[in-house]
Each structure stands twice: as structure tokens, then as C-alpha cells.
Design a binder for these strands. Structure first.
Lengths: 202, 202
DNA sequence: GTCTATAATTTGATAGAC
DNA sequence: GTCTATCAAATTATAGAC
């Protein structure tokens, strides 16, 4: 069934692309309607306001991209395997959608009150089970005692930040888009090594 | 001399504060004029356009905040000391100006062509001397052979990213502003340890 | 240098016909 | 469901008086 998208989906896709590329504030609803190939009034018929459209898109993007990550954190893998899988999967998600990081960070910089009401935001952070696992392994003497929040922040930083400064890296290291991807793929081995090293008892 | 600021400085300061707090796009020149306690037309008399005002502020912020960091990277300290000092100093800069990170990252997400023309952006990245030092130490067998760009990205990520997700951390870990600062200060020991560990030959 | 007033454009949103 | 036409508000920028 090579169906053509329905109107709602066309608007949704056009808006997603523009929001990611130019940011929410610099994207007008007129631009979105134009890109979707429909009329401005029709956009308003489906999504009543720009704010509403944004909320839908944000929630959807978060759910879509974090489902697998949560599964990994909540799995029964060993800590070491879990870290390796999480880093690899997260990296792959961002390789496919490299604008996601700066988009989310722009959102985080906005009015926090509104954001916290979006249930979607919680998907960004670690899970209870993972925290517990760090705690238990330390108690058993298998790893260094560590602050789980610090450790999770280390992990998030090393995985996502390079995407936020992608253009800076490409510029300064004089590399192409493809070479940047290689650069990132190298980190799938590098980052878990750093993290696991930090947990080892010396 | 408790001089009152001249008009240009008043505009500059008001704009800086608003840009950092609300982002460039969500700040109108009217807001800036109001905050500076002057008229809208006068703002235009000093800085011809909003874009121009932004460029001035961005350049100034970069220069101001990276001067000391460059000095450290270009000093004759040992690699280990250098990393420790750099992390500590950078962390302090951001503790004093926590909105700087998301501001800069929002800028990086904008039209890159315009940004690269701002000489200021180069201050963000490492120096030739530091890269050379990593290279030399590896050659002498004192540290693991490493990709300097990867290493510098690790360092930048671990230092700055936590500030970008400050509100997320505070929300999820249920901590106050002050506790967040403590959280960050703990990283002045943590981050160098992680980085130096990564360089050690196993 | 500083102001008032206003032009010119853009933007989010709606009314109303088909 | 989809469109044309338009409103109302906000925004950047300028003209011109003092």
C-alpha cells in the first residue's frame, strides 16, 4: 500500500523537520504549512496552536527515541554489558537524528515549568533499576562506590555532547560529515571503556 | 569613582542578561531598551541592528571567559596538572555564569556560516600546544596513544554538559540550586580523575 | 544624544465560503 | 476538510523634532 500521507501526518512531518533544523522560535507556522503543501488555516484546523503542535512533536520524538534505551537500562544484563549496549544504542539513535540533541537542549533552556508538565521529559534520565544496580555492585565490592547521578551525568555527557558541538568539531578538526560519523562511531568503544574504568577499584 | 554606566554599556548589559536568560530569539529589542531604561530608538542609534548587538555581545562573552583557559592550555605545566587546572578553572567560569553553556549551544545550532565568521568561536576549542603535548607524551611512552580531538571532546563534554542539563538534574535528583553547585564542585576532582585514568597505560 | 511617533513587515490565529 | 481573505498583535527599524 504505497499510501500518500494524510494531512495531519504531512503537517506533523514538515513541522518536525523544521523545528529540528531551525529551532521552534525561528520556524513560523506559515513555513510549516508551505512545506506540508497545505494552507495555513488548515494547519490550525488540525493543531489548534503552534504550542500545541510543538507539544505533540516533542512528546512523540521523546517516546520514539528513548523506548529502546529504557529497555536496556531495565534489562537484566551485567553492568558492563549494559553500559556498552546503552552507549552503542544511544549513539546510533543520535547518528540517525543528529539534530535531536540541540533541539532538546534548546527546549531545556526554555520555561522549565511548562516543560516539566510534559511527561516526555522524564524519558531523558536514567531508571531506578540502573541506579540500584550501581548501588548493589558497590556494596558487593565489585566496583568503586560512586554517586549514581554523577555517573549517569558522565555517561550522558560523553554520549550526547559531541553532537551538540558537531559543527565546531567538523570545523576545527577540518573533517567532513562522513568523517564526523566515523569519529562518533569510534566513541562506541571509547566511552564505555572510560566509564567502566572509572568504576574499577584501583 | 562610583560612576554611573554610560548608555552604551547599559544597553550592552541589559541585552547580555536577557539573551542569556531567554535566548536571542525570544528577546525583543523593546525589552532590551526597557531594561536598559532608555528608548528604543536610542538603542538603534548605538547598535544599528539587533544582529549587530548580538555579535558584539557574543564576541565579548567569548573573549572574557576563555582568556584564562587558553593561558592554561598554553602554559608549561605537566599534562596532569594542566588537566586539573583546566577543569577547575572552566568549572568556575561556568559556575559564575551557568547560562553561558546553553546560550553558546543555541548559537552553535544557528546558521553556522555566520558564526564561523565570528573569530570568537575559535576560543572554544583547544590549542595547538596542548595537542602537541598529548602527542609528545604518548611518543615518550608516558601515556596511552590517544586521538587528541577525542580526548578534548571528552574533556569538554564532562565539564560543560552538566550545565546544559542543569534543570533536568535538579528536577530528577530533587536538589536545590545550592546542591547543584555542590554537585558541580565535586566534579572538579572527579572529571580530572576520569580523564587522567583514560590516559594511563594499562 | 535622546526622545516621540510611526512605518514596514512578520506572525499567530480566525471568520466564513465552498 | 480545505480554502481565501483578513484581523490583531508584535517586532525591527527609521524619520524627524529637540
Amino acid at each position: 500500500m504505497t499510501r500518500h500521507k494524510n494531512t495531519e501526518q504531512k503537517i506533523f512531518d514538515a513541522a518536525t523537520e523544521l523545528f529540528l533544523e531551525k529551532g521552534v522560535d525561528r520556524t513560523s507556522v506559515r513555513d510549516i504549512a508551505a512545506k506540508a503543501g497545505i494552507n495555513l488555516a488548515l494547519l490550525n484546523y488540525y493543531f489548534r496552536t503552534k504550542e500545541n503542535l510543538f507539544n505533540s512533536i516533542f512528546s512523540e520524538l521523546m517516546k520514539e527515541n528513548t523506548r529502546k534505551l529504557i529497555e536496556i537500562l531495565d534489562s537484566d544484563l551485567s553492568l558492563e554489558e549494559k553500559i556498552q549496549k546503552y552507549v552503542a544504542e544511544y549513539t546510533d539513535v543520535l547518528l540517525e537524528n543528529p539534530l535531536l540533541v540541540s533541539f532538546v537542549m534548546a527546549i531545556l533552556h526554555r520555561s522549565w515549568d511548562k516543560i516539566t508538565q510534559l511527561e516526555a521529559i522524564s524519558y531523558l534520565y536514567g531508571t531506578e533499576k540502573f541506579t540500584q544496580q550501581l548501588f548493589d555492585e558497590a556494596k558487593k565490592g565489585n566496583i568503586r562506590k560512586t554517586n549514581p547521578t554523577q555517573f549517569f551525568v558522565d555517561m550522558l555527557s560523553l554520549i550526547t555532547f559531541p553532537f551538540a558541538i558537531k559543527l565546531l568539531i567538523m570545523d576545527k578538526a577540518s573533517i567532513t560529515e562522513d568523517e564526523f560519523k566515523t569519529f562518533i562511531r569510534e566513541r562506541k568503544k571509547r566511552v564505555p571503556r572510560i566509564l567502566i574504568n572509572e568504576l574499577k577499584i584501583k
